[in-house]
Design a protein around this nucleic acid. Structure first.
Length: 501
DNA sequence: CCAGCAATAT
DNA sequence: CATATTGCTG
């Protein structure tokens, strides 16, 4: 790792590199793809011949996470490779230079999880890791092994993790009886339970005795990152005026729920929260001592639900300093620095969380069985969807056409330090930021040039159309609930904490 | 409907 | 233990 180019890539937050077995007879393609993959922090083993690939697979010394191969291999039938790959439960991605839809279909039907057209855009490659995750999720669901995911979760700093509710609610609590209050049926059932979360040390959760597979409760760990965002939002809103809902919107963390924020807020108000690092040490003595996060008691305001006084709305001045005009992916937010910013003058202000939009999503994904609604390319791949964007401090409700993930060309030279990393996050059912229709008050037309700097989508989308039949398209809005594996890939490319020596 | 709080659950 | 959830009050 430690990508010398400082590239923010989607793999960085994994503990483990994703090891790709790349197979392509054509040398040029092989090399360029390998480079691209490495650029995105994959570990790559590139081979030109199918037989070599096969033997690598067979020998078992290599722990690949994903196989990416041209479907046309001169020496062997690529489906043999596929077969072997599937035997090892490796997600397998085929690619092909020619647009052979039939072949693509066959490949998908036979277990390939994706089918790409060559040449393949970097954005597609960048998102390949998601197939790995998806595969693991699938295994977890099938076999109930959680260990599979574990290693990936361990280092996810931002801490978004997926969980799919739906299976749990079947048995969990049907609320059958008593009809308490919730019984009003209505729309949302309890689909909301996603989990986001960061991993925490996790062992805490070993409580499952095996019987109830899905009873797990996932929590989000309030990592520094998350808390920083939280604090930034709080600061932005003003001490007396920080309500969970607004904080949530400002934080703009997919999957985070209002309740969670409220809970965290509650804790912070009581000064009961410690940063993860400072946790494990003795809680005994004066706890508030060494913690970097110690707020004056009245940092959050107790709850003056009053004055909407516009005049005293938080000065934007300090915010403007923190804008980061990054040409990176996606979205720009002002959040991020205020809390850490001044601490010991250690960090410069800046950073930003950019939320790059949807990447060619598991389109074409052929994860066995779950009927899920794989979203169609045409419909969803773009960014019709997540539309909460902060721009110059103003919430936009964008309905864009093409703010997709971009290649990182523009970030090449400038992103920076070893601290930069990306945190891919994925989730099952999530509540995104604000709901799109509520606060009309906050909305503002998008400046004409807002999307101008966003790169064009390049590359191929793969063959998702073959699944279109079973698809629920969702243009323009986030579906309320997702299927279990309907994972929305969202990248948080972030450059954070630029240390100023 | 939502914020806030406290207690309780996991 | 840290979070999530619930029940209650406004």
């Amino acid at each position: 790792m430690g990508d010398p180019r400082g590239v923010v890539s989607s793999c960085h937050s994994f503990t483990q590199e994703i090891h790709v077995l790349l197979v392509d007879h054509e040398k040029e393609t092989l090399v360029s793809m390998a480079r691209m993959l490495e650029f995105y922090a994959y570990k790559v083993t590139a081979v030109q011949s199918g037989s070599t690939a096969l033997s690598l697979l067979l020998d078992g010394n290599n722990q690949f996470d994903l196989v990416l191969t041209d479907i046309h291999l001169p020496d062997i039938n690529s489906f043999m490779l596929l077969q072997e790959s599937l035997n090892r439960e490796l997600p397998t991605v085929f690619m092909s230079a020619d647009e052979d839809a039939m072949l693509a279909k066959i490949a998908l039907e036979n277990g390939a999880c994706f089918f790409l057209e060559k040449p393949t855009g970097s954005n597609v490659l960048k998102s390949l890791w998601q197939h790995v995750i998806k595969e693991r999720l699938y295994k977890e669901k099938m076999y109930g092994k959680k260990e599979t995911l574990h290693q990936y979760e361990m280092s996810n700093q931002n801490g978004i993790r997926i969980w799919n509710s739906e299976e749990s609610d079947l048995e969990g609590k049907n609320d059958t009886d008593t009809s308490s209050k919730k019984a009003k049926d209505g729309g949302k059932k309890k689909a909301r339970h996603i989990g986001i979360g960061a991993i925490a040390d996790d062992e805490a959760c070993e409580s499952d005795k095996g019987s109830r597979k899905s009873a797990k409760k996932f929590c989000t760990e309030w990592t520094d990152e998350l808390h920083r965002k939280f604090m930034a939002a709080v600061d932005h809103l003003g001490e007396g005026r920080c309500y969970p809902k607004e904080i949530l919107e400002l934080m703009n963390v997919p999957g985070l729920t209002r309740m969670q924020v409220a809970s965290h807020l509650q804790k912070c108000r009581n000064d009961n929260w410690r940063a993860p690092e400072t946790r494990k040490s003795n809680a005994s003595s004066s706890q508030n001592n060494g913690s970097p996060y110690k707020f004056g008691s009245r940092k959050f305001g107790s709850m003056p639900r009053l004055q909407k006084n516009s005049s005293s709305y938080p000065e934007t001045s300090h915010l403007e300093e923190s804008w980061v005009h990054q040409t990176g992916p996606g979205i720009y937010s002002t959040l991020g620095n205020s809390f850490m910013g001044n601490r010991e003058g250690e960090y410069s202000v800046q950073l930003i969380q950019s939320q790059a939009h949807v990447v060619p999503n598991f389109v074409g994904g052929n994860i066995p069985t779950h009927n899920s609604s794989i979203q169609s390319n045409e419909g969803q791949i773009g960014t019709h969807g997540i539309n909460n964007v902060t721009y110059n401090g103003i919430y936009l409700n964008a309905t864009s056409n093409d703010t997709r993930d971009q290649n990182s060309g523009s970030m090449l030279g400038k992103t920076t330090n070893q601290n930069s990393r990306a945190t891919p996050s994925y989730f099952g059912n999530a509540t995104f930021g604000a709901d799109s229709h509520s606060s009309a008050s906050n909305q503002t037309p998008i400046p004409d040039d807002f999307f101008d700097f966003l790169p064009e989508l390049e590359g191929t989308h793969g063959f998702s159309k073959y699944l279109a039949g079973s698809t629920t398209m969702s243009y323009g809005s986030i579906p309320e609930t997702h299927n279990a594996f309907d994972v929305e890939p969202i990248f948080f490319d972030r450059v954070s904490l630029n240390k100023f020596h």
